[in-house]
Simulated assay, not measured.
Amino acid sequence: MVRFSNNLIGLLNLLTLLLSIPVIVGGVWLSKQGSTECERWLEKPVIALGVFLLLVSIAGLVGACCRVSWLLWLYLLVMFLLIVLLFVFTIFAFVVTNKGAGKVVSNKGYKEYRLGDYSNWLQKRVNNTKTWNRIKSCLQGGDLCYDFHHQFLNYTVLQFSKQELSALQSGCCKPAEDCQFIYNNSTNWTKGTAAYNNTDCDAWSNDPNILCFNCQSCKAGLLQNLKTDWKKVAVVNIIVLVFLIIVYSIGCCAFRNNRSENWKY
């Protein structure tokens, strides 16, 4: 029974070590295959995560199975810091995604999104020109509005108005309802001659490379997507936190066993 906690920690870290290998391979593959800035940006965090898992797993595996107390102590320290960071991030994710939601448009199947409805912290991130240009290139490179255009190309204005669009489609691929543009097709609209109160109306272009990617509504659509994803991540984080706390507790037992055996010798 004394050795059970050591063996269990060793087994868990062996599984984590095996998991880190495909993560590292995936990061290297992205670096070779990535054709857009989004994919090239993603490779570094993926490789860093894989290397981190590999090193921590080796420390826990050797520390528990070979009775190397200082390695197991280092492993427990890293685990403790990871638990704290994950807890802080989970709270932060809930706080910054608490505000913001789509506005229902009368007689329309889709919603529209306003940047001012979201948290100030998120607004500052997307209002940074350098950051937004990087995000915009990712959205354009991902064929978001190209697919949108072909999906609704032959729809009448009535058919189009009944569609349930995603936040990004609504914010980036079509003009705001305030503009009152004349519908030609899903990504082609005729502007009126009146002055617009909504700055997104002037930012709109029928150029498929521009559309509403420079609009505030596009930034809001991205934040709505981000809010949805972060909510899901936060729930997963809670589950991971419970698992890490259990592993940390078993690790503490293994560390105590190591110290007890060292005292005996």
Rank of each mutant, 00 (worst) to 15 (best):
D229P: 00
L122C: 09
V247R: 00
L139F: 12
L19Q: 04
I9L: 15
G34P: 02
A220T: 07
F4I: 06
T36A: 08
T156N: 07
I245M: 15
A195R: 10
C253G: 02
A194W: 12
A234G: 09
P208D: 04
V105E: 15
E164A: 09
K130A: 15
N225S: 14
R114A: 14
P22F: 00
E43K: 10
S249Q: 05
G50Y: 10
Q216E: 14
S170W: 01
E43N: 07
G171T: 02
L168T: 01
T90I: 01
I24P: 15
L223V: 03
E177N: 10
R114V: 14
A48W: 08
S31Y: 08
G10V: 01
I238K: 00
A234H: 07
N258L: 02
R125Y: 13
Y75T: 00
V247Q: 06
T97W: 00
Y155M: 10
L54P: 09
N127P: 05
S170F: 00
L53A: 06
N258C: 08
N262F: 10
G63V: 07
F160D: 06
P175G: 12
K264H: 13
N107Q: 14
Q163Y: 10
A167I: 01
G141T: 02
V104H: 15
T97Y: 01
N258W: 06
K44A: 13
C179M: 09
G221S: 05
I58F: 11
V240S: 07
K130R: 14
L139W: 08
Q159Y: 03
K174V: 04
R125D: 10
T16H: 12
P208E: 04
T131H: 13
L153W: 12
P22W: 00
S31K: 09
V23N: 05
T187D: 07
F152S: 03
F181T: 04
N206C: 06
A93Y: 04
V233C: 09
K231I: 15
A254L: 01
G100Y: 12
R3G: 07
L61S: 04
V95T: 10
D229C: 11
V78L: 15
S57Q: 03
T187H: 02
A101N: 15
Y118T: 07
R125N: 09
W204L: 03
W204P: 01
S260K: 12
L77F: 12
K108W: 09
C173E: 02
G26D: 06
N237K: 02
V126L: 08
Y155N: 14
W204T: 09
V96M: 12
T187K: 00
L19F: 13
V25G: 12
W230V: 11
L71S: 11
C218G: 05
Q216Y: 12
T199D: 10
S5G: 06
L222R: 01
K219C: 13
L74K: 00
A59H: 05
K174M: 13
S205R: 03
G116M: 12
L115M: 14
D178V: 03
T190L: 12
L15Y: 08
A167H: 02
P175V: 09
N6F: 04
A194H: 15
G171R: 01
E177C: 02
G26N: 03
K124I: 04
F160G: 09
N13W: 05
C66K: 10
S170Q: 08
Q159C: 02
F89N: 05
F148P: 00
D200R: 05
E37R: 11
L55Q: 04
Q140H: 10
R40E: 08
S260H: 07
L158M: 02
